[in-house]
Computed example of a mutant assay.
Amino acid sequence: MAAPVQGEPGYVLHRRPYRETSLLVDVLTLNHGRLGLVARGANSARSPLKAQLQPFQPLLLDWQGRSDLKTLVQLEVRDGPAPKGTVALYSGLYLNELLQRLVPEGDPLPELFACYIDSLHALADTTDVEPVLRRFEMAFAQALGYGFDWGWVTDLGREVEPRGYYCYDPGQGILAHPTPETRLQSLAGDTLLGLAAGDYGSADSRRLAKRVMRVLVDHLLQGRPLHSRSLFHKG
């Protein structure tokens, strides 16, 4: 039998009712990656777990079990910031859905876990969410093997030229020449170099980075909808 896990740092990504009185909880953890936990009795009126198993709440988790679906034994709630305001909340839910839908189960990604915590801190402290989202998406792409350098032209093997125009392909990064599958073209070199230097503040940088990340996320989702996107249109 697999050894019980105790005191594992983690966050709730999503939860839903399971059987009569339990919850099925998707969590992101530091050392065990994303996994599913059954919280027995947590959906009953008397259980404190229902209030504790909330998104964005830092937790220390204990679980046990041999199957892919483990059983939550107990948890400890820790202090931590949470997104403030409607747009920040929707942004946090977007991060959670990306992690829940696209991170492979049981694959530890400690750098992405740390970036997620940093993003929650930033969402709790700013009303300008777009730079936070774009930086997280870049870390997310890197963790899943789709990382790229804004300032490097993959098919030419050299740096982006400020006066040049380029393409983006999810599997190859920034390109000088489009492939038949290339969806994004005419990306300005000076804007790409600004992003490479960490500029997510200018209007051009924001617009270009958002377009590129939309294409990447859509590619990873393979046509499946991302439900959190609709929240921004409703808000």
Rank of each mutant, 00 (worst) to 15 (best):
L99Q: 07
Q100A: 15
Q100V: 06
Q100H: 15
R101T: 13
V103H: 05
P104T: 08
P104S: 10
G106K: 06
L109R: 13
P110W: 01
E111N: 10
A114N: 11
Y116M: 11
I117W: 02
S119L: 08
L120V: 15
A122R: 11
L123F: 06
D125I: 11
T126N: 03
T126E: 01
P131V: 14
P131K: 12
R134L: 06
E137S: 04
E137L: 04
F140K: 02
F140V: 10
G147I: 11
F148Q: 02
T154R: 13
T154M: 10
T154N: 11
D155V: 11
R158V: 04
V160P: 09
E161L: 14
P162Q: 07
R163G: 07
R163L: 09
G164S: 08
Y165P: 00
Y165E: 10
Y166S: 01
C167A: 14
Y168W: 09
D169H: 15
P170V: 09
P170S: 06
L175W: 08
H177Q: 12
P180K: 07
E181D: 13
R183G: 09
R183A: 11
L187P: 09
L187F: 05
L187G: 06
A188E: 15
G189L: 07
D190G: 00
L192E: 05
L193D: 03
L193G: 06
G194E: 10
G198I: 04
Y200R: 02
G201I: 03
S202P: 01
S202H: 00
D204L: 15
S205C: 12
A209S: 14
A209P: 04
K210N: 05
R211G: 14
V212H: 02
M213R: 02
R214Y: 00
R214D: 06
L216H: 02
V217L: 10
L220W: 08
L221E: 07
L221Q: 07
